[in-house]
C-alpha cells in the first residue's frame, strides 16, 4: 500500500473516532472533525453543482459552437434573479419570480405524481376481496382494508371523532403507531448497518484484525 493510502486510512480512522467521541460528551476533537466535515462537504457540493449545472447544463449548451441553445439562458436569468435576495428589500422582490417558477413547475409535476402513484393506485390496490385464499391471506387482506380505512378516518377533519367514527379513528391511530414502530425498527437496522460499515473500516482496513 502506498504512503498516501496509509495516511488516508489513518486520517479517516482519526475522524471516525473523533466524531464517535461525541457519545461520551461534546469535546474539541468532535468540534474539529465536525467543522472539517461541514467545510469539505460544502466545498464538494459547490464544485459538483458548478461543473454539473453551470458548466455542463448552461455553458456547454448555451455556447455550443455548432448549435447554441437559447433555453439554458432562461434558467440562467432565473438563477441570477434568485441571487437578488442578498441585496436588500429594494430588489429582493425579483427573487419571487424564479421561486414562483420552481414552485409552479414542481407543483404541477408532483400533483400528478402523488395523485396517481400515492392516491389512485393505492386505493385500487386496497380494493381486494377479503375472504379468499389461506388464513394468512384473509388476515392480511382484512388488515390492509381496515388499516387504510381507519387511517383515513383518523385524518378526516370535517367530523368530530365521536361514537363509531371516533372508534374507527382510534383504530386508525393504533395502525399508525404499529407502522411507526416498524419504521423505527427499520431505522434502527439502518443505523446499525452504517455503524457496521465504519467498524468494518476500522477493524478491517485500518487495524487489519478482520480479513
Amino acid at each position: 500500500m502506498s504512503w498516501e493510502q496509509t495516511f488516508g486510512i489513518w486520517l479517516a480512522a482519526a475522524f471516525t473516532l473523533g466524531i464517535v467521541s461525541f457519545l461520551y460528551r461534546d469535546n474539541i476533537f468532535y468540534k474539529v472533525c465536525e467543522a472539517i466535515f461541514v467545510g469539505s462537504s460544502a466545498g464538494y457540493w459547490f464544485v459538483t453543482y458548478f461543473w454539473d449545472n453551470l458548466y455542463r447544463k448552461f455553458y456547454l449548451q448555451a455556447f455550443d459552437p455548432v448549435s447554441p441553445h437559447i433555453a439554458p439562458w432562461v434558467g440562467f436569468i432565473l438563477g441570477v434573479l434568485m441571487l437578488t435576495r442578498l441585496f436588500g428589500a429594494k430588489i429582493a422582490w425579483l427573487s419571487r419570480w424564479p421561486l414562483a417558477f420552481i414552485i409552479g413547475a414542481t407543483a404541477g409535476v408532483y400533483m400528478m405524481f402523488y395523485f396517481v402513484s400515492n392516491a389512485m393506485l393505492q386505493i385500487g390496490a386496497s380494493i381486494k376481496p377479503v375472504f379468499v385464499g389461506s388464513f394468512g391471506d384473509i388476515v392480511s387482506n382484512v388488515l390492509i382494508a381496515a388499516g387504510t380505512f381507519c387511517g383515513l378516518v383518523y385524518f378526516f377533519f370535517s367530523k368530530e371523532h365521536k361514537g363509531v367514527f371516533g372508534g374507527a379513528a382510534r383504530v386508525g391511530i393504533w395502525f399508525l403507531m404499529v407502522t411507526f414502530g416498524a419504521s423505527f425498527g427499520y431505522t434502527v437496522m439502518s443505523r446499525m448497518s452504517l455503524m457496521l460499515g465504519r467498524l468494518d473500516f476500522l477493524f478491517g482496513d485500518w487495524l487489519r484484525l478482520i480479513s
Binding site: 381486494k128 377479503v130 370535517s158
Partner: peptide
Amino acid sequence: SLKGQDVGKFVAMIAIVIGVLIATLAEL
C-alpha cells in the same frame, strides 16, 4: 384546501368500503 382534501378522503373511504364489499361478494 383542507376541506377539499377531506372530500378526496371521503371518496377514498367510500371507494374502499364499496369496492371491498363488491369484490368479496363477487368472489364468494
